[in-house]
Design a binder for these strands. Structure first.
Ligand code: FES
Ligand code: FES
Lengths: 134, 134
DNA sequence: ATTAAATGCTATAAGCAGATATCATATATG
DNA sequence: CATATATGATATCTGCTTATAGCATTTAAT
């Protein structure tokens, strides 16, 4: 009932980078700050770079910076690169085909809350996170 | 961002059993109805039995029946035997210790929705599920 | 130039949830 | 009693997520 490690780490990294954009964001530095295992952190940064959220600067005193405006990166976008939101569309009781030949008995209750979550993830950008942190 | 298979299967099994309590609930029968892999289903039924939700009748024409009133089994109780609800208390951005030395910037937004979920899980019993299925 | 410090790339290991397999034991039915 | 059918218990396999390791390449500083 939560995100995968990879997703959580991605969210931690990008929100930290968004809030402290002045600092030099090397993998080593982020490792010190966020305590994410270094080689794993490296992989995730590469992934975030491939997905166009950040760009890398190689060589000494290199690191990562955002490659597009923070307003244009929603939490849902970040989750989409790893877990995706599809699991939130699944039945909370775990039915694939409903054995009752209809929506399961938790459906209506779950639907509202589930939509709230998706709404939050879609409507919250990294810029919003920065604002709230101030 | 959803329950583990074990939890989902547990929820499927117990809600199916609650709704169709008249039928003979052997592992084989439940397997036919719910399409949960048979040996895995067996393990989960044993687990649910150990946790006191259901009791078993061994031997030919044996199977499983509830061992306490369906009013006294909440979804949260079932989840507690597997995943537990602790993950819902975790930071949605994945921070263990908040690197900002305070609650993370998603905290307040997430809190309400998270409480809704916990409330639903705690306040919905198998009896409620039966009622809604009618 | 040389070196130090960074990312790029990719192969591999470790750990866990999901799934399977097997034998022992119990019991209803004939 | 013999048999078929059920659960009890437990060991093992598998695949995915998490994590590690190592070498190549780039770049800044000296
Ligand atoms: S069918 Fe189960 S939550 Fe929708
Ligand atoms: S501290 Fe991050 S959601 Fe509460």
């Amino acid at each position: 009932m939560n995100f995968s490690k990879t997703t959580s780490y991605s969210l931690s990294i990008l929100s930290y980078m968004a809030i402290n954009e002045d600092e030099n964001m090397s993998a080593k530095y982020l490792h010190d700050k966020l305590s994410i295992p270094y080689p794993y952190l490296r992989q995730i940064l590469t992934n975030l770079s491939h997905h166009g959220f950040i760009k890398s600067q190689r060589g000494r005193s290199g690191g990562f910076t955002f490659s597009k405006p923070k307003e244009q990166i929603s939490i849902a976008d970040i989750v989409a690169t790893t877990d995706g939101l599809r699991s939130l569309s699944n039945c909370i009781l775990g039915f694939k085909k409903c054995p009752f030949n209809k929506q399961c008995s938790m459906h209506s209750v779950w639907e509202k809350t589930r939509n709230d979550i998706v709404k939050i993830l879609n409507e919250t950008s990294l810029a919003d996170i920065v604002k709230r942190a101030e």
